[in-house]
């Protein structure tokens, strides 16, 4: 029995390492020289170098990183600004037809984004918003809003009704009620929601590739530059991929206990 348990644990570890091996390999390759990256057989041991990371920055990574950071930050703030009152109106003080409104928000998440890309392109062009970070900010806000509302609503519903009633009876006005009673309970939920929004904005590819280029391009656009450049620089590509993914990897690891809730839009805790 004990031996069985140990071998099952060993098996689990083996599966996990195999599963994540492409990522491990990416990390290893990012510390190789290009010559070391293309050997046959592939090299597991080599003299590590940081030259690829330097190369990524020489290639002009920084502006893309700054764009991603700006777009992610502003769109996430916008999502919170819109979603917090909306989830309040769909949970604590529910409006009529709450389930229809929730259904509407969810259904927008299910609209394939490809179906709207042409008008979005034309509209952005007319508004001088092509290759402009604000176009991405608006779209990412709309993309994450339904998810944020659903997720945050599930946190709002955890505020004990008695607490709200007690505060109302005490004559608390709405701002006081929100700030003193609701906010402390839902603050962790708001933080978790924000992290999920950050992950989705940071990794978004379709809008970024179609609506932005050199000026407003985000990190995924920078990465996609590696397929059009002459030949592939594997080691440099790995370094770029690692740098690009690192922020969301860290956020995802931090938020892993809330990941399920975010991915299921609050349905599963």
């Amino acid at each position: 029995m004990r031996l069985g348990r140990i071998s099952l644990t060993a098996f689990t570890w083996l599966v996990a390492i195999l599963f994540v091996f492409p990522v491990i390999w990416m990390v290893l390759t990012s510390f190789k020289t290009e010559a070391d990256a293309y050997t046959d057989p592939p090299k597991l041991f080599f003299t590590p170098t940081l030259e690829q990371f330097a190369g990524v920055f020489e290639r002009g990574f920084l502006p893309y990183l700054a764009n991603s950071g700006f777009v992610t930050l502003i769109s996430t703030l916008a999502v919170l600004l819109l979603a917090i009152p909306a989830s309040y109106a769909l949970s604590i003080s529910p409006v009529k037809g709450t389930s229809n409104v929730l259904g509407f928000f969810l259904s927008t998440k299910m609209l394939p984004i490809v179906a709207a890309i042409i008008p979005l392109y034309v509209i952005s062009q007319n508004l001088q918003l092509l290759d402009n970070v604000w176009a991405l900010i608006i779209l990412y806000t709309a993309m994450n809003l339904p998810l944020a509302i659903w997720m945050m609503r599930s946190f709002f519903l955890e505020v004990p009704k008695e607490m709200i009633e007690a505060a109302r009876v005490d004559g608390a006005k709405l701002p006081t009620l929100l700030y003193r009673v609701v906010l402390p309970v839902v603050a962790p939920g708001i933080a978790a929601t924000a992290l999920i929004c950050v992950i989705f904005s940071w990794t978004e590819f379709f809008y970024a590739v179609n609506l932005s280029a050199a000026r407003a391009g985000t990190v995924p656009v920078f990465l996609s530059g590696f397929i059009t450049s002459e030949g592939l620089y594997w080691a440099q590509l790995s370094a770029a991929a690692l740098l690009a993914s690192l922020p969301v990897m860290i956020i995802g690891w931090i938020a892993q206990n809330h990941l399920v809730r975010g991915l299921s839009m609050g349905a599963v805790k």
Binding site: P22, V23, T29, L223, V248, M249, G252
Partner: peptide, 20 residues
Amino acid sequence: LIITPFLILPAAGALLWKTA
């Protein structure tokens, strides 16, 4: 470890598989 592939940028994951 197991959630990590989901957190890699999809663009990075695709290029990684294509090359390495």
